[in-house]
Amino acid sequence: MITMNHDLGFDRSSTDLILIVDDVPDNLAVLHDALDESGYTVLVATDGPSALSRAAQAQPDLILLDAVMPGMDGFEVARRLKAEPATATMPIVFMTGLTDTEHVLAAFAAGGTDYVNKPIRVREVLARIATHLHSARAQRQARNALDAFGHATLVVQVPDGRLLWQTALARQLLETHFASDGRLAPPALIAWLQRLTMASMGSTGSVWPSSSPPPSLTLSAGCRRLRFTVHEATGEDQWLLVLREDDDSATLDALMQAFKLTPREAEVLAWVTRGKTNRDIGDILGSSPATVKKHLEHVYEKLGVETRNAAAAVALASVRQLGGG
């Protein structure tokens, strides 16, 4: 008899968890017993909706998915799993009696990692599972290692901007800065990558000269900035990016301390040091250029200067001296 494990209160510390999805009880029984005897923790689902629910809640290490089921078929289940950040990286091995090329292609197009033919050969299934679990474990360790060293990383598909892969730290930064749901890149980043893709078309070798730094884009939200730097183009219009967060709070504190500036005056001066115009600063801070100009007049007076360049030079020297940037 198959244990359905409705409360999902099992121990994940020492075993991999496999979710089997099939609407035929005999198939479930054979696979469940074989996997259980091989030391895996096993969950089962008999239809698409319950498969989605169990995958989201239990976070299995691999999914064995029947392609043909009544109602929501396996292809649709896979598409929905891949569309959700929480389940997108789970390996999916399709089980199908449909060996026509179009069905095999449909399985991979829906996000399948591999497929096995029915009737199921248990030893073959176990071998495939072991291989894909090893690969998934290596990828998970790589993502965790990147996060551990502060390297937030993601892969973006162009032109639609889908996030194909991301570390937990990258997902957190995108959510903090852009209220991202983990599915799409920010619009400004998508537009930039589209331009980069167009510029790289027809080029040979590297996308950018080896003597030049990799292209990067900085998006700002108040005094916080998120820099996206291209690590490499991974092929098929996919870009691997590294994210880095910069926080200007130390710089603003240093400017306010040195020159008795208000918080808004310090923000305006910080953007002046980066060469932004009054209109640019107004757009960033949500103010009119006239308001920015008025703040600058106060800044000039407090710094004892008369020009933007002089204000920028004095500010940068002061920040370096005080250790705020």
Score class of each variant (00 low, 15 high):
V122I: 15
T153E: 10
G161S: 10
A56M: 08
T96R: 01
N5F: 01
P263M: 03
I2H: 02
P159V: 01
A188N: 11
F75V: 08
D36L: 07
S135G: 03
S211I: 11
L296R: 15
D16R: 03
L240A: 07
Y115D: 01
F259K: 05
P209Q: 12
D61K: 00
F108D: 03
E232S: 14
S50H: 09
D73W: 06
G323E: 00
A179V: 07
N278T: 05
G182R: 02
E297A: 13
V207R: 13
L126Q: 15
H6L: 07
E102H: 05
E175F: 11
V122D: 02
A199M: 10
S206V: 11
A86Y: 04
P91S: 13
E124G: 06
S14W: 02
G39A: 05
A138S: 08
E267A: 14
T89C: 08
R80G: 02
P25Y: 07
L8W: 06
D26F: 05
L43M: 09
E232D: 14
L285G: 02
G202Y: 10
V24Y: 04
T229K: 13
V122C: 08
A142G: 00
P214A: 15
P85V: 14
L261N: 05
S53R: 10
A136T: 03
Q141H: 06
V230M: 14
D7C: 00
A191F: 04
G182F: 04
L8Q: 03
D253H: 07
D7I: 00
S216N: 14
R143S: 11
T277K: 12
P186N: 08
V156R: 06
N144I: 05
D73H: 04
E232C: 15
H231V: 15
D283N: 07
A168I: 13
R121Q: 13
D23C: 04
A170Q: 12
D280E: 14
L164K: 13
L52S: 04
R274D: 11
R79K: 11
Q139M: 08
D66A: 01
T176D: 12
S203T: 14
K302F: 11
L98Y: 04
N5T: 05
T41L: 09
R183F: 06
V42S: 10
